[in-house]
Design a protein around this nucleic acid. Structure first.
Lengths: 236, 236
DNA sequence: ATTGATTTGTTCGTATGTATC
DNA sequence: GGATACATACGAACAAATCAA
């Protein structure tokens, strides 16, 4: 229920139905026929997407800036979702699609056991003919029974959602800079040793198992990763 | 109440009082003498700090990895807080401390009006003699009445909290790569044009006004910015 | 393999506090 | 000061996933 309401509110924000503020909780309660607790839970979700700022006694204010764009990826809504609306869908060119066994390094990176069987998908992704990123993605077979070449050419997450009802619940993200090695540099057309912004992510199912982990090397010019945090006053 | 409980739970996690799981809600209710809703609200806070993964029917599992360290900044707990425990306090060398008026670019960056009076603090920060970052920070005088040179040499946020009860409620963060211009390159000792990871942040008070915005250029080797997201299933 | 107990997830109602207008 | 609007807290009930007997 609160998910649907949140979804609805987010759509309204994107459609710019509200100028600067959300309607009051009271109004939303009437509109959606839900209790105050449910409305507030829904607003929490919208807030966590980085779309709101709240002021007690005044209201919920819409944040204009982080609207997902070609150069701003709102990671608060999840990388997969962010990448889907970044000024048009990304086009994937599959470089590698095979199965590998997790070695020490991969096991460490993906929080899985050494020897686990993994689908490996390496893709170059383009936004309107401009190279956007290089994505090296792994899917443990224990969690993902089957991946087709076709699914891998489009949105893998969308495929998993539709085919298996697999949906990520939490993601751990690490942003850092990496000096490109020769093979990767060649793939993205940058000099060897170039400092590139990289997002490492681990995606968990609701039951706590890893169904995906990946490294994404960003090439696109002037790209910004946006996210939003709430600072609760934990006086110590 | 839920803040204090959250604080307590976080301390316990850091002190490694729990092995892999949190006690059940029932136990926590008894321990803190609070209702289930309040306990769950507190756990939400801990969760948003990126310290937990939750599994319905099973429990709350502690995430080991993102423990703040010298090379991992957990931004889910707020940059200021993360920087304070990054393997020892950072030592600041103040480069500039003065008052300026917001020009077009600053007004844009900080979501303030052109002409607003700003404290400007530029600092180099070190971790055990190694340069950690270059921080260019601005504090609108409308929100921050006074800053002393002394306060600026230590944790400014701690000073604001203690002196004025000023506490940030939400932060908007943008991570990107910047090619260093000559003055900045000289300050940090990197080549001009070097691609450097930069964190732009805007900090808001609970009443919605900006009390700080900043750009932080990271120099420290192998630094990773960590954050944690929850992906709510908004089926569309 | 089914059942039953445990544990977290969702939703309602209600009351009171606090900041803003 | 009064009305409005968001924040916090308690109690209760049922749903859904997990786990152990």
């Amino acid at each position: 229920m609160y998910r649907a309401i949140a979804q609805d509110i987010i759509k309204s924000i994107i459609a710019e139905e509200y100028e600067t503020k959300l309607p009051t909780e009271k109004v939303l309660m009437a509109r959606f026929g839900a209790s105050r607790n449910t409305i507030r839970k829904a607003i929490d979700v919208v807030f966590q997407h980085g779309l709101l700022r709240r002021v007690q006694g005044s209201g919920y204010f819409i944040i204009k800036a982080p609207q997902n764009s070609a150069t701003v990826l709102n990671l608060s809504i999840g990388f997969d979702r962010a990448a889907m609306v970044a000024g048009g869908p990304l086009v994937s060119k599959v470089v590698t699609f095979d199965k590998v066994q997790a070695n020490e390094a991969l096991a460490q990176q993906g929080n899985v056991a050494v020897g686990d069987e993994l689908y490996r998908v390496v893709r170059l992704r383009y936004l309107k003919d401009a190279l956007y990123d290089l994505e090296e993605s792994y899917f443990p077979r224990a969690a993902v029974p089957f991946l087709s070449l076709d699914s891998v050419q489009h949105s893998i997450f969308a495929f998993l959602r539709e085919a298996y009802g697999i949906y990520g619940s939490t993601t751990e993200n690490y942003v850092h800079q990496v000096r490109l090695d020769a093979p990767r540099a060649k793939l993205v057309g940058l000099p060897v040793g170039d400092k590139t912004m990289c997002l490492d992510g681990i995606n968990y199912l609701a039951n706590g198992t890893v169904f995906n982990f990946s490294s994404t090397y960003f090439v696109y010019e002037d790209l910004e990763l946006y996210y939003h945090t709430e600072n609760i006053d934990l006086q110590d």
